[in-house]
Design a protein around this nucleic acid. Structure first.
Lengths: 222, 222
DNA sequence: AAGCAGATTTTTATCGATAAAATTAAAACA
DNA sequence: TGTTTTAATTTTATCGATAAAAATCTGCTT
């Protein structure tokens, strides 16, 4: 029986905190007290503090010199900025992905599309409830789309922006269940990418982001 | 007399370590022992460790779970990757900067260009010696070029890549003193940007990076 | 009631101490 | 003489303790 390779406490705390933050389980602006977190995650001050330092560098947490840490605030302006940056950045990345992606890229994208199409958007049949499986497949799909880009640096940057965006999605999740046909949008994007039609794929992807952004913005502001 | 607003030890160590790393004063791959650093910077384990955690998130330092930290390695492949990513990213940023930059942007760019032109590239008259003033003006120039881009996110990303690149420059510095006319290249880039000729400005900027990269690559490999 | 000075309680930032793990050096062996 | 084992030494990761700084509460004053 293989041991569950338990890496340092610092990494554990980092991972869990990151998760809770991205999941929206910790509200933006919340004060993050070292002791409390330590108690919650079963660790002392040092690991927690280190984890918080890292997260601060990643932009998920704010460090306010003499007075500790807090969850990064989430504002409509920040969100808009984020979407804009994402559209520009992914324009480049998707273009490169389409230009450089080989057969393996195509295969993976086809699989990701298939999976995403198969999974229900909502977890419950009545109202809308976030479905973790769909979320995972959705992330995988977008990642597969960009996976062909040869620059890991750019891919990582896109990934960072995605995470920040996912956080906003999670924060607005209880409200937004767009009546539009998200599945069709994904389908169209994949279609264009596989056809190596970069301009069309980029335009569709950006439209996809902008539409989603509209819904989220309403949910956040309202 | 105003006090030298001394922020936390952690921040201080972070700043100084970062500086030493970017300056090439600490060789790539060097083991970074907590105690030693603490002694050097006059701090205990906690602040040093926190600083290292942050730097790891920024990519300047590597954390190797059970066995501490080390200065991020510098390889030719990594460098090439970096240059490529930079060309793509700054293509977008410069384009946006030119499109959105107002009079203030123009003014600042003109000043930055003027300053850079005025300062000698080398610190000594005989051979080549890095001139801190020129380095600063050079950074300021490139920053001014991109300052018009309305997306702070993208600007920050470009800044991050610049830092990584500066590190490579510092590492190769004792060797590379290109015989080409760097000043003229900068002049031409500024010229095109101020003329709002985005395609030309982008092409020149990329050529500038690629040429520099060539020299550095030789210096690193040889 | 609103404002404020002081006293009280939290919280932060940092240190020093320590078990566990990793590295290095020394000794034993083939 | 080149390994392998064992012992000694470093180094890491983490905890608990603590001074200094910040936030909160309290009751007094106008």
């Amino acid at each position: 029986m293989q041991a569950i390779l338990d890496d340092g406490l610092t990494l554990q705390v980092h991972r869990r905190l990151r998760h809770d933050l991205l999941q929206g389980r910790i509200a933006p602006g919340t004060k993050l007290k070292v002791q409390a977190l330590g108690a919650a995650y079963g660790a002392g001050a040092s690991p927690v503090r280190e984890a918080l330092s890292s997260l601060a560098s990643e932009g998920l947490v704010q460090r306010i010199d003499g007075r500790g840490f807090r969850a990064a605030p989430a504002t409509v302006e920040d969100f808009d900025e984020l979407v804009r940056a994402r559209c520009w950045l992914e324009e480049v990345v998707l273009r490169e992905s389409i230009a450089a992606g080989g057969p393996a890229w195509e295969d993976a994208l086809v699989v990701a599309r298939w999976r995403l199409a198969r999974i229900p958007r909502s977890g419950s049949t009545g109202g809308f409830a976030p479905n973790p499986d769909w979320e995972a497949a959705h992330t995988a799909f977008h990642r597969a789309l960009l996976a062909g880009c040869p620059s890991s640096t750019l891919r990582d940057m896109a990934e960072t922006l995605r995470e920040r965006a996912e956080r906003y999605r999670a924060l607005a999740n209880r409200i937004a269940y767009p009546g539009r046909d998200v599945a069709a949008e994904h389908e169209a994007i994949a279609e264009a990418a596989l056809a190596r039609d970069a301009p069309r794929a980029v335009a569709l992807l950006q439209a996809h982001y902008r539409t989603t952004a509209g819904f989220l913005r309403d949910a956040l502001a309202g």
